[in-house]
Amino acid sequence: MTTQEILDGLKQAVIDGDEDSAASFAAQAIDAEIKPMDIIKGAINPAMDVVGQAFEDGDAYLPELILAGDAARAALDLIIPTISTDDLDGSVQGTVVIGTIYGDAHDIGKNIVSAILAAHGIKVVDLGINVSPKQYIEAAFAEDADVIAISSLITTSLPYHREVINNLVDRGERDKFFVVVGGGPVTAEWTTQIGADGYGRDARDAALVVTQLLEGLAEGNKAPLAAPILVGALEHG
């Protein structure tokens, strides 16, 4: 099989949400000594762009997006360990622990963000729904995470966002993780008020915030930011 055929096969496997096939093509690509970043840029990222655009256009739906994200993750699990520092070439690397905050069982937005981040080669640890502030922090330390991403659709769960940040501050470890927030009732004002590092109005915005934070991390930025990164915020009276 030629290099192009392997990359095309991997791209299609991700688009189809076929984890086994994606892992198989990823293994073949590594055996064929294709550079890891060429695999990601030549197959995985374009595949997720195709699925993401189809979702925007109404030609694909949430299950396809989630399954494509899973397939991309299956391939990346094999590819990432082979990446050397020289390969990085300015690409975004990092680990994000993500979940829907305590008291809230809504997971659609969180799932979309997870899928998009995974497709960009970012390690995503999904903590699920109803995640307590303590669980976020414990998981962030256990995974050596860079970012804690908190999703909410319920207003009375918002105070738990602040609790995550206050808990980090009280432990003297606020500088260990960026904290990003998003979801229906979350606003730019709330993000600033609680001292979070980022906010995205929709899933794509949130993924963009995380990648910007990780890029900043590579350039030496540390948490907490003096002012949060706000993407997609709507103005109101």
């Binding site: 979702f55 109404g58 739906y61 949430l62 299950p63 659609i108």
Partner: peptide
């Protein structure tokens, strides 16, 4: 949910 798990 349109666009969600049941699709169109």
């Amino acid at each position: 949910m349109i666009g969600g798990m049941p699709g169109p």
